[in-house]
Design a protein around this nucleic acid. Sequence first.
DNA 1: AAGTCACTCAACCGCAGGACG
DNA 2: GCGTCCTGCGGTTGAGTGACT
Length: 329
Amino acid sequence: MGRPPCCDKSNVKKGLWTAEEDAKILAYVAIHGVGNWSLIPKKAGLNRCGKSCRLRWTNYLRPDLKHDSFSPQEEELIIQCHGIIGSRWSSIARKLPGRTDNDVKNHWNTKLKKRLMKMGIDPVTHKPVSQLLSEFRNINGHGTSSENFVRDFKTEPSNNSILTQSNSAWEMFRNTTSHESNYNSPMMFTNPTSSEFQATTPFHISSHSNHLLNGTTSSCSSSSSSASITQPNQGAQAPVTTFCWSDFLLSDPALPLDSQTQVVGSSATSNLTFVQNENFNSQGECSSQKIASKASGSCHSASSFVDEILDKDQEMLSQFPQLLNDFDY
DNA sequence: AAGTCACTCAACCGCAGGACG
DNA sequence: GCGTCCTGCGGTTGAGTGACT
């Protein structure tokens, strides 16, 4: 059973669009505007599926689209958004005027995901791999499973996460994207390098570094991604949760020692702050991963958390001495 | 010069949800 | 409430292209 096809697939053209076809779409839309896409191919004289026409328009022909490469600010925004809501590309794209979900998705898959992986960060959870390994061992309690995890990570990084994105975070993000389409939205992301990002708005992510965007393979200090999310309406009462990549990286044995030193230096200006409230975490517990738990105090003290990670890393290293050398992206 | 490989990105596919009769 | 149609979305594919051997 299943849904009937939207059009007669055998009689419609597929594949790349020609300039003539583009011109027909543009001419039609210029006169009539966008409407019922299932009728547009016929009216515009195109032998294409309506869905294909809509996609061509939304992803390529729309006059408000940018066709240049992504700026560092845009890239950081994508990384930050992905860390919060995962692969909700359309929502992320709404934060980037002139970019489509397809653009963002492609850029993530071809550039940003690889960049994070090279830096030893799981592109799904945005956590250091060593931490995931520790957590995975806690779940399974046996090294053999961890070995499988490592193998899977190396072969198919996009599907190996043992953790899920925070649905609560997504709900909050979605609520702020329902009535915005650009930087002047209720949810803002700030970046000192771009004045458009400066936020005076209810919800913002502030970035104080472009470490991720410098994308080097030599130093993990570049992984000190940072952001803060605040909701002033409740911020005064809400517990503030601060997350620093550097805290994880300090305990990341994959890092060279001097890189860790650099991380210490960068942590002062690089942190991710979650102001939790009932919308963000209605459970009142550490459901938003241990990322948020480090400094929350409600789940672990900061020192015990770091100590725990260090202990786990040491334990992991003792069992898999060659493990970290195997990460050769 | 030719073949191979890796990468990018436009386009496709199928599903879900909303609107409407 | 139900069925149909349309749109939006995320995952995937494959043609095109450049780098490399």
